[in-house]
Design a protein around this nucleic acid. Structure first.
Length: 574
RNA sequence: GCGCCUGUAGCUCAGGGGAUAGAGCGACGGAUUCCUAAUCCGCAGGUCGCAGGUUCGAUUCCUGCCAGGCGCACCA
């Protein structure tokens, strides 16, 4: 679990600390305890902070509302708070509005692109395994989730000062390649392979699985070819290499579209030469035994099914390579945290993997975490590469970009560089759509939903950002401005929301949920839009205008910072 | 059968031991002499799956049940 508990320099922090001090000095309460118990009331008319008095009831031998009322009498408002009121069992604090706005805006505008960043992860390394598509298969919409969530976590942890290592653990080894080879040798055509490699390999894969249902020999043939591949057979090897090279070219094109990068492309095949050592290590630890002809690690004491290291024919398995990879990663990177951004359907595999590492005596095994996410499914069932039931990611991106382009032509025909903006908006919408909801939920794939750019979407946030940029452009350069003039409810709501950004990043990291940042950005954009409709900026009186320009410039900055964490562009016009 | 995940508004989902449970979409009604209406405002809509338990207080934590999803040895 990432520890990000240190108190950041967030502007609201100063108010909270002041409450701790006030209650300690004037009522003799424990400062740290007060600080920990502070809540944010459900609505602004109840104040900015609330101190619940329930816990005091026993020691004070008084009803909580009575305690709150007593405390309200004792606490002088001072410069930080304009009012301190009891409301039922709560003691509510109303921040000095001018001070709040000034602190919030100043924090953003002085830290700029660093606003929200922390040093809590300084000196710590986190290895993130994400995307990890299977070679010789199309990059389906299903792989999107791992890719996008992993990339966002990478940026989020980086923002907290962690040294991140992004690894693309390509599925480039395993029995499936024996099947691919067998299928290619039976039905493959060099011409088709050259012309449209992924398409051809995909067709072969689907054909293999459909014919295997009636032809028992096919599966055996596939397994045999994989064994040959592991044993270094020349034909198998060169075909595999060819499939791999062609697939990688394809993947890189998609990654470029999404702005996704990796520090390493160590696929499963990378560990081939080390597998024997890994197995020997496990055997020497006395953990391996033969069962039904296969080499296994018994995990019955952990309440788990056995972990298979070698099949009857001696070939290795997914788990073998993952064990090897984990050990190699620890040796190479000395990670403090290892995250596996992999679908929830593989939860058992990771429990087994971590259990074996633990049995090997590796204390770092407890720093390895599966970060599961729900499946993307169709209304009538799971996506399946084997059955040819999948949606190509590229098609989704292309259609989204196309739609964004059409909307631009309609709404802002004069926009320069429409293609770039359409791409930023279209891909942004797809990325955001995947990050907005909690990872663990399954997603039902629906073109209408994917291509809906209204409401809680990336275009909504991007649009808010573009509007701000437009206002700032028209305002031109200006000096000064006093944000403490921003006392209206709409202005205050925006300022308060600005202060929540750092904690959103920390919570996203702690829970491995980029959705926390995504949700925050929608909140901020919404507060900005409300403000924008209620409060004119350029038309306002000079000092108010300057103050509002500072406010929206701060919003602009936070929207940029937040979108960047999610890997989404922030065009200045759209 | 066993294990893991999910169950909140018509739909898609936030939230989370405490003050009247929130958004978006959809429906309905409004807002543009003014900074891009990919926007905003109003209205309607909820036994927080069901039943127990812990607690001053549970939608939130615990147990059981129900429903859906996923997984359970030679795939990854």
């Amino acid at each position: 679990m990432a520890k990000c508990k240190e108190r950041g320099p967030g502007s609201m922090q100063q108010f909270k600390e002041e409450i701790g001090r006030l209650l300690s000095v004037h009522a003799g309460l424990d400062e740290a305890q007060v600080f920990a118990d502070l809540e944010v009331p459900p609505s602004p008319e109840l104040g900015d902070f609330a101190f619940p008095c329930f816990k005091l009831a026993k020691s004070f031998r008084m009803a909580p509302p009575r305690i709150a009322a007593d405390l309200a009498q004792k606490i002088p408002p001072g410069s930080f708070f304009e009012r301190v009121e009891a409301k039922g069992p709560y003691l509510n604090f109303f921040c000095n509005r001018g001070l709040l706005a000034a602190l919030a805006i100043r924090a953003v505008l002085t830290e700029k692109e660093n606003y929200g960043r922390r040093e809590s992860g300084r000196g710590r390394t986190v290895v993130i395994d994400y995307s990890s598509p299977n070679i010789a298969k199309p990059f389906g919409i299903g792989h999107l989730r791992s890719t996008i969530i992993g990339q966002a976590l990478y940026r989020i942890f980086s923002a907290l000062g962690y040294h991140c290592v992004g690894i693309n653990h390509l599925g480039d080894w395993g029995t499936q390649f024996g099947k691919m080879i067998a299928a290619y040798l039976r039905w493959g055509e060099e011409a088709s392979l050259s012309a449209d490699p992924i398409r051809h390999l995909y067709d072969l894969y689907v054909r293999f699985h459909s014919e295997a249902e009636t032809d028992q020999a096919l599966e055996d043939e596939g397994r045999a070819w994989f064994k040959k591949l592991e044993d270094g057979d020349e034909t198998a090897r060169s075909l595999w290499q060819r499939f791999r090279d062609l697939s990688l070219l394809d993947f890189r094109r998609v990654y470029k579209m999404l702005g996704v990068e990796f520090d390493a492309y160590q696929g499963e095949s990378f560990y081939n030469e080390m597998l024997d050592d890994t197995i020997r290590l496990i055997e020497e630890a006395g953990l391996a035994r033969l069962s039904e002809g296969a080499l296994i690690v018994d995990l019955e004491d952990e309440g788990l099914p056995p972990c298979l290291l070698r099949k009857q024919d001696g070939a290795t398995l997914y788990a073998t390579r993952d064990l090897c990879a984990a050990i190699w990663r620890q040796h190479t990177y000395r990670f403090d945290l290892a995250l596996y951004v992999v679908g929830a359907d593989q939860a058992l595999h990771f429990r087994q993997l971590f259990a074996v590492l633990k049995k090997l005596g590796y204390s770092w095994a407890e720093n390895c975490h599966h970060v599961p996410f729900g499946l993307i499914r169709f209304r009538d069932g799971k996506m399946s590469t084997r059955q040819g039931k999948l949606v190509f990611l590229e098609d989704v991106l292309n259609r989204a970009v196309e739609l964004a382009g059409a909307i631009i032509s309609e709404k802002n025909p004069g926009l320069s560089d429409k293609e770039t903006v359409a791409r930023q908006v279209g891909t942004g919408a797809i990325i955001f759509g995947d990050l907005y909801n909690d990872r663990v939920k399954d997603i039902e794939f629906d073109w209408d939903k994917v291509l809906d750019f209204s409401g809680e979407t990336a275009p909504y946030i991007q649009y808010s950002h573009a509007r701000i940029c437009s206002i700032l452009r028209k305002a031109g350069k200006f000096d000064g401005g006093d944000p403490s003039l921003l006392l209206l409810e709409e202005e205050q709501a925006v300022a308060r929301t600005l202060t929540r950004f750092p904690e959103a990043i920390e919570r996203a990291a702690e829970t491995y949920r980029p959705s926390v940042v995504a949700r925050y950005l929608v909140d901020l954009a919404r507060e900005f839009n409300r403000f924008y409709h209620q409060c004119p900026v350029l038309q306002a009186q000079e000092d108010v205008k300057k103050a509002r320009l500072l406010l929206i410039d701060a919003v602009r900055q936070v929207l940029v910072n937040g979108l960047c964490l999610l890997g989404i562009a922030a065009p200045e016009e759209m």
